[in-house]
Design a protein around this nucleic acid. Structure first.
Lengths: 321, 321
DNA sequence: CCCCTTATAGTCGAATGGATTATAAACGGG
DNA sequence: CCCGTTTATAATCCATTCGACTATAAGGGG
């Protein structure tokens, strides 16, 4: 290890020996007819990704290049999710791989090209996350008993109650409220408990029959869970939903999209009030007739508000405004 | 570029040619007597950092190792901030450096050792961010006129009004409210406008006399601004302040710490009500006599609430609870 | 004992947010 | 053409929150 700050400051000291590989990986999201989808390649078990190379001007442009090359899909809005490192155990000599993950919001419009890519529903991978039609039976029938068994499996009493409490908070057991933002914690809990195939695969464990949801390669499903959690949290304080909407839409379509992301149903009048008082949209003057009932007004997003970052309201009890 | 998903999926195809260097860099924060401080090395112009190497078990442990080695300070709470890449123009052949930045919250307790490290006030680097004693004169006297001049400098009319609007939102000009969370946008705006020395240094520009705040090497001040913004946002919905507090404290000390971070004064009765109704603290039974007036009750953080992640209240108008 | 300082408790009204009800406008079948 | 069905849109009620302010308590010092 280098000891002197001067030498380590720009890290050129022993650069050659400390090289790593950087991989860019994308969670590309769209919502179609109230169903949230993620862009996958391979057999639907893989997120678009590729190494960060010299020809990329930036991390973002590298990511865009890889996704467009692998799926034919150009990206609009993207934001960084998380960076993590894993010791790569694949080849003989040790090699570090750093994965820089991004969340992208888009619409399923462009032809997916001839590639091996496909839009898959989020809830194929996380069937316990969709509460729009009530709490999935999977939770009470499979996950809850297995989580409790996993908790009971712990050696120490403290660990047992700790595990039970974590499971109860994450999955809303024991009359606790369901919190849709805890998607990542839930996946990690299921991983720890060996209830997703990735865990049993990584550990070469046994219970590969009792796993929930479609598996993905490496830690791609964990990255997907990270994107899901981030998006569910972000729609509450930033107008990012509109990245997923067509240029013109009805308020019910907007509501269905938010519901698809949150995995929960929303109170209709209150949702409309919320949207209107924030002045996020404006009427186009047109109406949509294919609603089945009274025609709905069509709206479009007011792009002006994107700049008014001041929407982030304070939560501190400040003194004299 | 690699074309086939199969080959690019784990990126081993041409790994040797795509190696980069990964650097870990830390924004270590503490608050002492109402003054927020950041741990620096060198001449106070450098954040602790070092390359991510094979002996590090994870990114986090690598960061802890570097900070402890360079400053003698062990870290408690840390969270990832952002990852960015810059083409390194320092040496002849092109080489990519990826910087993975972290935010660490701690207390200034441990001896700083014999190292060249020092605690410096945040507001040395961002003098326009401290609004506890009112809006700093710097803004009206220096920044506002120079920002307006920069806006007027633009060729196109649209760009001019765009720049004026950005400046007004970021700095609360024209009767707009001050938003302490926009610390990063403000720094980036000043950089664009050439009002921080880093910009004129990078561009070899001229106006190096009219710069604001203490400079740091490379993009360290930008990283510091990222940490400041993240922390100012996070204290509003997660009980992270307590990482900066001693085990036992009065409610006014707690308030002063939050005020130091936010750079704004807080309404005292309402702050107390907020803390109490969230049940974040409990009385120790002791009182502090060195308040100057009536003795204050001493409190301690209720560590239980750390697990109750459910504090993240919903903002969506959900249907039938 | 008065006065200064700080701590702590309580109040009042505006605004917010959840739940519910009422009215409007299309369609289709008798 | 009426009428029930469906969905859109508007309005209301009420509990809770939140900002601003006032009042009381308890120490120290002259």
């Amino acid at each position: 290890m280098e000891d002197r700050p001067k030498a380590t400051r720009n890290g050129r000291a022993a650069a050659k020996a400390k090289q790593v590989e950087a991989e860019l990986i994308a969670v590309v999201v769209s919502v179609n007819d109230g169903e949230p989808a993620v862009l996958t390649i391979g057999q639907g078990d893989c997120l678009p990704s590729g190494p960060f190379a010299l020809e990329h001007r930036s991390l973002q442009s590298g990511l865009r290049a890889w996704v467009e090359k692998q799926t034919g899909h150009p990206l609009g809005y993207i934001e960084q999710l998380y960076t993590f490192a894993d010791a790569d155990r694949a080849d003989g000599r040790q090699q570090r791989v750093i994965s820089i993950s991004y969340l992208a919001l888009t619409r399923k419009e462009h032809a997916t090209g001839a590639s091996t890519c496909a839009w898959r529903s989020w809830y194929d991978y996380f069937p316990w996350e969709d509460h729009r039609l009530g709490t999935p039976k999977l939770i009470a029938d499979v996950l809850k008993p297995r989580l409790l068994a996993w908790a009971a499996d712990a050696k120490q009493t403290a660990t047992r109650s700790e595990r039970r409490r974590r499971a109860a908070i994450a999955f809303g057991l024991d009359e606790r409220p369901w919190n849709e933002e805890l998607a990542l914690q839930r996946y990690e809990l299921l991983y720890e408990a060996g209830l997703v195939a990735e865990a049993t695969r990584d550990e070469r464990s046994i219970a590969s029959d009792s796993t929930a949801g479609t598996t993905m390669v490496a830690d791609h499903r964990r990255i997907l869970a990270t994107g899901l959690a981030r998006l569910r949290s972000k729609i509450k304080y930033r107008p990012v939903v509109f990245e997923l909407m067509p240029p013109v839409f009805t308020l019910l379509q907007l509501q269905r999209t938010v519901e698809a992301l949150a995995g929960r149903l929303i109170n209709k009048p209150n949702f409309r009030r919320l949207i209107e008082q924030q002045e996020l949209v404006e009427e186009t003057g047109e109406t949509s007739l294919d609603t089945g009932g009274r025609p709905a007004k069509l709206y479009q997003f007011r792009h002006v508000v994107l700049d008014e970052t001041a929407v982030a309201g304070t939560k501190l009890p400040l003194a004299r405004g």
